[in-house]
Write a protein that binds this DNA or RNA. Structure first.
Lengths: 242, 242
DNA sequence: TATTGTTTTCTTACACCGCAAGAGTTGTCA
DNA sequence: TGACAACTCTTGCGGTGTAAGAAAACAATA
């Protein structure tokens, strides 16, 4: 009795599996992702996925990698104009992308990110800055800082929204509960001061970029000047540690 | 045959359980933490812990809370001097603390942080800034930005170090592998330019604080001036959108 | 001391997880 | 038709969080 136990081929691909995984965590959250459930979503038994992806860790890495590949176009849309504008647009697009995939955000934040896609993205950014006259070390500092700021901010933003799984829904307790122990916070929550997360993001981003631009400009001036004066000047920005 | 199956009381406490959990993840990593193993480390059966902590999610929350309580003293050591110095010292201490507890860092980053300890910390910071004349909304922006920057940076830093569990050890592939596809990165990895993570942290932190300080100063000036000129000025920093 | 009641600990059980090993089916090509 | 590769499934193992409740340790009282 050769009962047909294996389904006819489904035309699966490593890429399809990873895309389905991204879609799955976007809908059900990261904690809900398991081989069996993802397999079910793909019309296939759980263990089948191991034919395309060697382990769950590899699946998560692949998801991050794929997300970066898919978003690469949006992240560096039109690299023209001064580098500050390019980097600002990049950060804004990155934040948008991260907030669109909050589950992927926690994966991205937790997992080390030295993958080809992330390196390519970084390389692309460096090229923009270098073409605008920014030294290599400074370009790396700027991009690393902006990415890390955006990531940290996005993490806080998705943490605020209580679509977190596992803990109590935590309603708007804040607006009422403090008042004595947290006078300033109580006031902030009452009036809404300083609670616009998006505005804080843009503001700090602007300050960060303007600060770096000013420092680089100063370094360039100082460097040019020192060629004449030959006086002992602070080293030019590359190692201008605290 | 009343064989003694339960051990004599161990004097356990919710606090002791949480402290042991922190010590455990500090040593073995977050993924290794389980009730049974933590129980074994405490000389007790795994289910016993449920008498002190209602769930694993609650345990993780408790660990974050406890860590903040324990570190509160270090984080705001000597709140004297201009607010920029206080906040800088806070960020430096926070980074130090996070790097000392890399496993806790991922918990802290993933889990929403509106707990009493974190609110108290924030309130304390706001008080410092407010006492130095910073408006409430701006104080929140500064503190939120600094915390998120520090968190994002620390995440990247522990991600660089390959003590990550589950993936391949990933040796120093970078120094050799690119060269053609990532010319700038290859150069950076070869010469070491822009790779000093700690220096980048301090540099960006300094730029961030200086930028905020300058903007607040400008807002104050603009506000004072506008009292005389009555001219149409940009609104003073609280709603100075992007 | 014996009894009761509370606090703490353990046992058992269940559903789920990632994954190793291998058997089975399906399609392709000689 | 046969052989072979590609793909899918089954089984099984040790691990997880946790619900439910029995059993032991202790404290206090009779």
């Amino acid at each position: 009795m050769p009962s047909r136990r294996t389904r006819p081929r489904t035309g699966l691909t490593r890429e399809k599996v990873i895309d389905a995984a991204i879609a799955y965590v976007d809908e059900h959250g990261l904690a809900a992702l398991s081989n069996r459930k993802l397999g079910a979503a793909l019309g296939v038994e759980g263990m089948t996925l191991y034919y395309y992806v060697p382990s769950k860790a590899a699946l998560l890495d692949g998801m991050v990698e794929r997300l970066l590949e898919l978003s690469a176009g949006d992240l560096f849309a039109a690299p023209s104009g001064p580098w500050t504008d390019v980097v600002r647009d990049f950060a804004v697009a990155l934040r948008r992308m991260l907030l669109d995939h909050p589950a992927m955000l926690t994966v991205l934040a937790t997992r080390p990110a030295a993958t080809p896609a992330s390196l390519a993205l970084l390389e692309r950014g460096i090229t923009v800055l270098r073409d605008d006259g920014v030294p290599l070390a400074d370009a790396l500092d700027v991009l690393n800082s902006v990415v890390r700021w955006t990531l940290g901010h996005a993490l806080a933003e998705v943490g605020e929204t209580p679509h977190h799984e596992g803990t109590e829904p935590q309603p708007e307790e804040f607006a009422a509960l403090d008042r004595d122990t947290y006078p300033h916070l109580a006031r902030a929550f009452a009036t809404g001061e300083g609670l616009d997360s998006e505005q804080c993001f843009h503001r700090t981003l602007r300050i960060l970029l303007a600060g770096y631009a000013a420092e680089l400009e100063r370094a360039k001036q100082g460097l040019a000047e020192s060629e004449f004066t030959k006086g002992p000047h602070p080293r030019p920005a590359g190692s201008a540690g605290q």
